[in-house]
Simulated scan of single mutants.
Amino acid sequence: MSHSDPAPRALRLELALSAGLALPDTGDIAVFHPRSGEQLTPLPRERVVIITPHAPDFAVFSAQGYRCVKAAEGRFAAALICLPRGRDEARDIIASASGATEGPVIVDGQKHDGVEAVLRELRGRVELSEAISKGHGKIAWFAAAASAFADWQAEAGSCADGAGREYRTLPGLFSADGVDPASALLAGVLPGGLKGVAADFGAGWGYLSAQLLVRAPGLTTLHLIEADARALDCARHNVTDPRAQFHWADATVPIPRLALDAVIMNPPFHSGREARPQLGAAFIQAAAAMLKPSGQLWLVANRHLPYESTLASAFRKVTELPGAPGFKLFHAEAPLRGKPGAAGKPGRSVNRNGRRS
């Protein structure tokens, strides 16, 4: 999956270098959390180290020949921060970069992701350069000062489910402050009689997986598939059942030789601020490709998301279960063989509200 470069980050970097940003002549340059499709051409490729916990981005930049790591390791001569949308996550990345870098620390982001507010905060803590505006975003830089951001380093948090079970979370993760209502709705309909091998696509910090393992003692294995390494680390802490196996992987890409009896999912439908319902469609198609002929899928989605056609093209039987005002639930059975969604024998239409034809 690729993203266009909306910044344009490369152009802002070029303008900054022309305006006085000086990169050290030697040493590695850390680039924190770039997204696939973004251009980093103003930086010397052989010195760039991509730091990203996101498996799809890691794979894309690795394929382009960049050195990639999931988290900052060692010291860097300079750092470029590609600001995320979340304020707490952005602060944590700035603190990490400043603590691992000799300097300069370059901060670049889009206005709709809050770059202006971040730059205002930085001016109260460090000597920040003049910001350069271009492409609906801004770039500025400062000399690394780890002590200035000690209070910005993210610390693990926690939340509890309705039964009082505590879960470890982290700022910047999906639903870090509490159990997502859609996931709670799906957990309530998961059957207890499941057996064999199952998977949680986009497992996050592990809530749905923990619920399923309690409900279904007949499961032999549950694979947690999650693209964010930070969320997966939390899931390892939250899901200690020995039947759990953890995969840092893109759930839109089928895992070879993994045959499943059941899949559960509450798929994402945003990339940053951009709505991308095709992400959920890709989750469904990957599930159909990995399920056995008798396999089953349980899915929860926001009510406005158009997943019905994807489900109907990927499964022989699809039933919409009673949902909630903001969410809909589906149970799909018997994946169609061949490419899901390809031309050929269609699946049945979605049956509504638990009624089967």
Rank of each mutant, 00 (worst) to 15 (best):
residue 7 A to E: 15
residue 23 L to Q: 09
residue 184 A to D: 11
residue 160 A to N: 15
residue 274 E to P: 01
residue 118 V to Y: 03
residue 275 A to Q: 10
residue 176 A to R: 09
residue 54 H to N: 12
residue 337 R to W: 02
residue 277 P to R: 00
residue 311 L to Y: 10
residue 35 R to V: 11
residue 251 A to R: 00
residue 147 S to A: 13
residue 112 H to C: 04
residue 233 D to C: 09
residue 97 A to L: 04
residue 122 L to T: 11
residue 14 E to H: 12
residue 203 A to D: 01
residue 294 S to G: 06
residue 227 A to H: 04
residue 45 R to D: 08
residue 46 E to K: 08
residue 334 A to K: 15
residue 349 S to I: 02
residue 337 R to N: 01
residue 55 A to Q: 13
residue 150 A to T: 15
residue 282 A to Y: 05
residue 30 A to E: 02
residue 10 A to G: 14
residue 198 A to M: 08
residue 168 R to T: 15
residue 218 G to F: 02
residue 26 T to M: 02
residue 243 R to T: 07
residue 90 A to W: 01
residue 342 A to H: 11
residue 350 V to C: 10
residue 181 P to F: 01
residue 131 A to I: 06
residue 314 A to S: 15
residue 29 I to M: 07
residue 210 A to C: 00
residue 111 K to R: 09
residue 118 V to R: 09
residue 245 Q to F: 05
residue 206 G to Q: 10
residue 350 V to R: 09
residue 76 F to E: 07
residue 259 A to H: 11
residue 327 F to E: 04
residue 321 L to W: 07
residue 27 G to M: 05
residue 109 G to C: 02
residue 190 L to F: 05
residue 180 D to Y: 09
residue 147 S to M: 02
residue 13 L to F: 05
residue 253 V to H: 03
residue 183 S to N: 05
residue 265 M to K: 03
residue 103 G to R: 08
residue 119 L to S: 00
residue 11 L to H: 15
residue 13 L to W: 11
residue 173 L to Y: 04
residue 282 A to Q: 13
residue 176 A to H: 11
residue 103 G to T: 08
residue 219 L to M: 05
residue 161 D to H: 03
residue 119 L to H: 03
residue 204 G to P: 08
residue 35 R to A: 14
residue 147 S to C: 04
residue 90 A to K: 04
residue 329 L to G: 10
residue 269 F to L: 11
residue 191 P to E: 03
residue 282 A to F: 06
residue 123 R to F: 03
residue 250 D to R: 00
residue 307 Y to E: 07
residue 238 N to T: 14
residue 155 E to T: 14
residue 131 A to N: 08
residue 211 Q to E: 13
residue 52 T to D: 15
residue 303 R to K: 13
residue 81 I to H: 06
residue 174 F to M: 13
residue 200 D to K: 04
residue 297 L to C: 14
residue 192 G to F: 01
residue 287 A to F: 02
residue 330 F to K: 08
residue 153 Q to Y: 01
residue 317 K to Q: 14
residue 35 R to W: 01
residue 108 D to C: 12
residue 354 G to D: 07
residue 311 L to H: 10
residue 123 R to Y: 01
residue 154 A to I: 04
residue 87 R to N: 01
residue 304 H to F: 15
residue 94 I to M: 04
residue 347 G to A: 09
residue 206 G to T: 14
residue 64 Q to R: 09
residue 258 L to Y: 00
residue 187 A to S: 07
residue 137 G to P: 02
residue 131 A to L: 06
residue 43 L to Y: 07
residue 303 R to N: 04
residue 94 I to F: 02
residue 289 A to L: 02
residue 252 T to G: 14
residue 161 D to F: 00
residue 94 I to K: 05
residue 281 A to H: 05
residue 182 A to H: 00
